[in-house]
Structure formats: structure tokens, C-alpha cells
Design a protein around this nucleic acid. Sequence first.
DNA 1: TTATAGTTAGAACAGGTGTTCTTTATCATC
DNA 2: GATGATAAAGAACACCTGTTCTAACTATAA
Lengths: 212, 212
Amino acid sequence: MKRLSEKQRLIAKYINKFLSKKGYPPSIRDIQKGCNISSTSVVDYNLNILESRGIISRHAEISRGIRLLSKSPAENISTVPVIGMIAAGEPIPVPTPDTWDVAAVSETMDIPSDLIQGREDVYALRVKGTSMVDALINDGDIVLMQHVSAVENGQMAAVWLKSEKEATLKKVYVEKDRVRLQPANSQMREFYTGPDNVEIQGKVIGVVRQVS
Amino acid sequence: MKRLSEKQRLIAKYINKFLSKKGYPPSIRDIQKGCNISSTSVVDYNLNILESRGIISRHAEISRGIRLLSKSPAENISTVPVIGMIAAGEPIPVPTPDTWDVAAVSETMDIPSDLIQGREDVYALRVKGTSMVDALINDGDIVLMQHVSAVENGQMAAVWLKSEKEATLKKVYVEKDRVRLQPANSQMREFYTGPDNVEIQGKVIGVVRQVS
DNA sequence: TTATAGTTAGAACAGGTGTTCTTTATCATC
DNA sequence: GATGATAAAGAACACCTGTTCTAACTATAA
């Protein structure tokens, strides 16, 4: 596959900008003016190349019948409710039936669908404090959770330690008569406790961090 | 505000369907046929009503110049190019003019606009290896970068250490005649080097992690 | 009924728009 | 230099498409 020429990249970029700015695709003459191209036939020529490269698709004889093939972003986005905060010494918020209703929740968040991977019952928690650095999670991070009551061995989960009254994010391994909680950071030591002491609140499926 | 008539709702629905199916807006005659309307003027008449109701916006004298105003999640979404990997011992990929072109890049990623905050020149790097755990960044994470050549003190940045031939993510503080590189994890120790040894490759503005 | 606003039909116009054709220019390769 | 592929310029054609105009048809209220 040959590389796109300067002009072709300019055109693709212009279509992108036009589309997101105006909401409808540009005509050939829009592209001509917007990219300072001398003739409509030159635009046509390069659009055909862009189409053969799979960048766009064109509909013959239809004005503004250009479509960007980069899969429309809207399909790759999911909206999840942010139902509260998770901090070391405080109980972990548990989703209730009405928190699922994205429209009814005070705060929501849009995230790439890749992170969800078609899972149901996904919600988000804001991390407060630096107590979870051993899980490579910082103050202010947002963790994406899936609501489950049990996890497979090795899954990272939000765990409530009853006797310690502490919330933590660890990889969970159920062993013979104890539970091993392993930090994500392999440099840190694991931790053992009794099965009755742990309460699985949810499975961690992702982390989003915004750096100042 | 009067309610929309049956016909107007049908038209709005048709525009929506047409747009998501074809990728460009319908012409008046498309709507006419699609909704079994007898005359283009009837379509025009009802489109004007839809516009005055704020459902759509129209651009005069421009074919297919219809835009749906219902705020779609797509407005909260930005697409950034994933231009390569960042690993401890390998050079950091630097964006080139054509990598900016979202349409021309092999891999892209959709992320919530909140993470971008209107910044320009944003790209993404895939993290390889666990060498950046001290920055609370794990193997497989994706870091969002902004292309800058200099950063303010305290900013987390992708740094290339020339003599060590090593890429790293640290908070950068320029001091009198040395540069302090501070891990994001406050439990880890800072690191000093000469100003000539550091090459700022970009500013870290976010991290996205997918857990298994 | 009459009046009035809201809606529909049909047709025609003018400009927008995709397409195509011919000619010319550029450039690498033999 | 000859040659062929790639790229561009300019113009012209024919259809697409938004707009507009007139006339007719509803429905509701006076």
C-alpha cells in the first residue's frame, strides 16, 4: 500500500473537519476551495484514490455522498454512571437498580467501548487517596467496575476487608482455607486473610487517569 | 411549544436513520420518497417547522445541508491516533505530520473529550513492559500524550535519557543546573541528571488501562 | 356559513454538484 | 531522449436539489 500524498492527506483532514463542524459532508467544490485545489477534477481524482485506499466511501451521483470510513466514534463509546468514591477507610458504594439508569444518575462518564467489551452492569468509581498505589492506581483515578459477587482467581477486584474495615483493590486468589490478595504491582508483597473476611464488591475492568 | 405532528416525527426519525445508515444527510427528495410524501414543498414546509422547534438545523441552498441537533455522545468524543509503543529501552515514537491525520493512521482510539480538554496535538502510546510502575503505569496501559518540546515544572512527561538510552515517564523539575525526575509514586525516590541528558518528547495528559 | 391559520399538491426555476473529456505537466525508468 | 504512469488544469454537460410560486384542501372558531 503506497502512502497517501500530501494533497490526499489534506483532503481527508478537511473532510473530517468539515463533517464535525457542519454535520454534513463537503461537496467536491467545498473541498476544492477549502484545500486550494485548482480544479474539481483533481479533487475527484484524489477522492477516487482515497476510496480505493479505504479511507472514505463515495456514493455515485449523489451530492455530498462522501462518508468517512473510520468507524463512526459514537459506536465506540459507552456511557457509564459514576456512582461514588472509593477510599481506603470507607465502604465501597454498591450500585442499586436506579443507579443503572444513566439518565437518572447525577454524574456519568463516556468511555471507549473497548474498555467495556460488551459487559453489562458496568459503573465507575472515583478513587480518593493514595492507598491503592500498590494496585498502580492513584488519587483521582477513575476505576471501571463490573458488578459481580464472585470473581475468578487472579481477577482484580474491589474488596472490602471486614475486620480491617478497609476497601482495597487487589488480585484475588481463593486458596484452600485462605484468600490471597495480590497487588498489581509485582514488586509488592501479597497478603493473606480468611475467606470470611473478604467481601467482593466488584471486578475491576479498567482504569482512567487524567494527569493535571 | 406545540407537539410535533405525526409527519414531522416520521421525518425526524427518517433523517436519523438515513444519517446513521449512509453517513450523510438525506436530500429533500430522499425524505419525500422515504416518508411517502407527495411533494418536495411539503417536506420543505415540515423541515422548516422542525428547524424552528430546534430539532434540526438547515443550511440554505446547500444540498443535504441538514443536521440533527440532538446532542449525540459523539460530541464528547475525540479520536486520537495511536502512533506506537513506548518501552524502557526503545526510542519514543514521535508524531510526524501524517500521523496526525486520523483518517490515515492505522490505529486510532476514541476517548472522552474530558481527557483532552481541548488540547491540540494529542496522540496515544501503548506501554510495553513494567519499567514504568514507578509512574503508576503498567504493561499494556495506554498513555495519552500531548506533543510539546518543553514542559512546566512538575509536569509528567515522556523523557528520553540520552546517555542511559532509556525512555521513562516522570515528573520533570528543572533546577539550577540539573533536572529532577520525580516518579508519580510518592513512595519512590527522585532522580537527578544533567539538563543536556534529557529530551522532552511529550506531556502525559492521561492514562487508560484495561484490566484483562 | 365565513374567516383564518395550517397543511398539501404540483410544477418550474436557478444554481449546486458529480462526472467526464481533452490537454498539459511531472517524474521515474529504461 | 523515449516512454509510460501519475497528477493536474480547465471546461462543459447533465442531473441533483433547494427554493419558490400558485392553487387547493383541511380544520377550527366566529
